[in-house]
Write a protein that binds this DNA or RNA. Structure first.
Lengths: 120, 120
DNA sequence: GCGGTGCTTTCACGCTTTTTTCACGCCACG
DNA sequence: CGTGGCGTGAAAAAAGCGTGAAAGCACCGC
């Protein structure tokens, strides 16, 4: 693991501003109402924005401990978080599923087709 | 570390960046959406870029076990991978067929120039 | 104590994507 | 032509995922 030079107080990803100390998230200046789990999940993903993060990693960094087989907590909270992000920023897509791998957090236009094979 | 070559975290082949730990592939910076099999096939080929790899080798390193007679899995996934690479990088050709031998992974201009490096 | 409220965990159903398998057709070669 | 090798669309089977809702808890005002 690389030693990060400093831990910032605020993360900026797309039009999101995540205030770590306060537990507050602003979307284009407007506050989102997130629960503790939702907030920590968002932070865990935003910290590694652009990378694919496995459910195991997300679970251990948000819930602590090992993800047990069959535990769908991560999926459920990803779904909740998506709902809130989507209603705050309908034109953005932040959470991308990579089946078999995990999730990737990255702001992209919501209609955009990624880079699918032709016809997708 | 004299004895064994370290295994890198990231492979670079042409304009592809293959992040092994994450299961993520970037083509000129943009994320490709690959399935698990597609990704592992790409990795198996990229690791031996420039060499001809037989179907047996590819099968055993991606699927594990022996390739059964008549099993076309490798061909099918080579085709899928070609499709995605081609739509991401239309000007490149990565996967070359050597009939009777196997496949060779190497970035080349996609034009139908039929020239070998030596002679021609 | 009691019912109400909000968060978390768990369960289950159905849809989507991936993987496997099958089959048809093209191509090079003898 | 006949044959081996290969590309690839599509059906069938399997795995993965999204999500509504039930159930368990903690907290709060009455």
């Amino acid at each position: 693991m690389a030693a990060s030079p400093e831990s910032p107080d605020i993360l900026y990803v797309g039009e999101l501003e995540i205030r770590l100390e306060e537990g507050l998230v602003l979307a284009t200046g407007r506050a989102l109402t997130l629960s503790v789990r939702e907030f920590e999940l968002l932070v865990a993903m935003a910290r590694r924005s652009g990378a694919i993060i496995t459910r195991e990693e997300l679970y251990s960094s948000v819930w602590g401990g090992e993800l047990r087989a069959g535990d769908r907590s991560v999926d459920v909270y990803v779904s909740k978080l998506r709902g809130k992000l989507e209603s705050a920023l309908p034109d953005r897509r932040f959470i991308h599923t990579h089946p078999g791998f995990g999730y990737r957090f990255q702001p992209e236009p919501s209609r955009n087709v990624h880079m699918e094979p032709a016809g997708g």
